[in-house]
Design a protein around this nucleic acid. Structure first.
Lengths: 209, 209
DNA sequence: TGTACATCAGTGAACGCGCGTTCACTGATGTAC
DNA sequence: TGTACATCAGTGAACGCGCGTTCACTGATGTAC
């Protein structure tokens, strides 16, 4: 089905992205440059325009891949250790520590002038679904003002879980990223305590308590 | 004491920073350019080297100013509405919403190749002190594994509060930034619910419950 | 299997741009007698 | 108050760099008869 040329194209595209990741890891997402990537591949700059329409298309591809990778890592963790919020949380944190710049690409400061296409939102939804599934059998907890608001969102997004689960998921989600984004950004550096313990304490407090 | 020349220098420095903020608000921190700033001021690029040794010094100044501004805003809120964690939290969130790019400058993805000097850590401490002060009269809550770790940090940082307060402060801190950074980054955009309510729910859950 | 043609990967030159930073300089502002 | 000198703000040219992107082209790879 796939011709040799098509396979070759796919290979080069993959190699370009590989180099892009290396570049991101070194100098952040804003440093992604088609010319620089071409150079490290021993090619001339314009050659890459055979594979990507422009710089934005490359970035979009990278963002999607990062998201997919994160979803895969979370899914794999669930498959291995069970559908548990803490399992997902640790998978995400581990991934963030392994690939800080990829984490920033998704959850960090938005790249100026770049707007993520709708496909990424779709993948983001998959991640949320994974979390909702892990949370769905928990006891509700007291009703609150936010619930009414979430009910509207639930209908709109066609999510099939009670508001109480949605509420727990959102709290869990924000706390997870609260710890992780601050620690990866280095805001706890030189403060001399174990951020892993802080993370675990936060996740424990968020669940059942 | 201050000569006219010194006063003039301070004025120009301030004006440069004013334009830098405008540039940051438009295209993010990585877009700060001395040449571009000079142009909008009707000056030539090299002129600014009379006022800042180089680009990094400008950024350092901006980061410090942003921090100071955030501390001032928090202090003002406390002065007006009392020393309450929720008051501080709302002050920080309001500031972040008013100046999203300044918020990112401090708490967002680190600027590649730029390292904050120690003075900024000092100002960050002031903000934490403000929070610790607001939390200091709360009941302890059950002891946990993190406490031992925090005790070491307390000694090292010469902070004069019990571990339980430090623990509460850290939890409060991470949850605050968890909601705020995600909402400012736009991760709740198009999800159709009121992030203000989510924020309030998180802060309420974090305090007394 | 061999030839003719079409497809397409990659090159090199070029365009226009903006960046940080240096340097020798002009001209205005302040200072000392 | 007036003159001589020192200080210093700002200019314009220049350096070297890298960026994204276009374009006409060469040469290799695949396809059809």
């Amino acid at each position: 089905m796939t011709s040799p040329r098509e396979r070759y194209r796919a290979q080069v595209r993959a190699e370009v992205k590989e180099h892009a990741w290396a570049q991101i890891a070194e100098a952040g997402a804003s440093a992604i440059s088609l010319n620089a990537i071409a150079k490290t591949m021993g090619m001339s700059g314009p050659a890459l325009y055979r594979y990507f329409a422009n710089r934005d298309e490359l970035i979009t591809d990278l963002v999607s891949d990062a998201y997919r990778q994160l979803v895969d890592a979370s899914r794999a963790a669930v498959a291995e250790r069970g559908s548990d919020p803490a399992v997902i949380a640790n998978a995400i944190r581990d991934w963030a520590h392994t690939y800080p710049q990829r984490y920033f690409l998704i959850y960090g400061t938005p790249i100026p002038g770049y707007h993520a296409p709708s496909t990424t939102t779709e993948i983001a939804t998959q991640l949320m679904d994974l979390l909702l599934d892990a949370l769905k059998d928990r006891e509700p907890g007291p009703a609150m003002a936010l619930d009414e608001n979430l009910a509207r969102h639930r209908e709109w997004a066609h999510v099939d879980v009670p508001e109480s689960v949605l509420r727990q998921a959102l709290g869990f989600w924000t706390r997870l990223h609260g710890v992780v984004s601050l620690e990866i950004s280095g805001h706890f550096r030189d403060m001399g305590f174990d951020t892993q313990l802080l993370f675990e304490a936060e996740m424990a407090a968020s669940l059942g308590r």
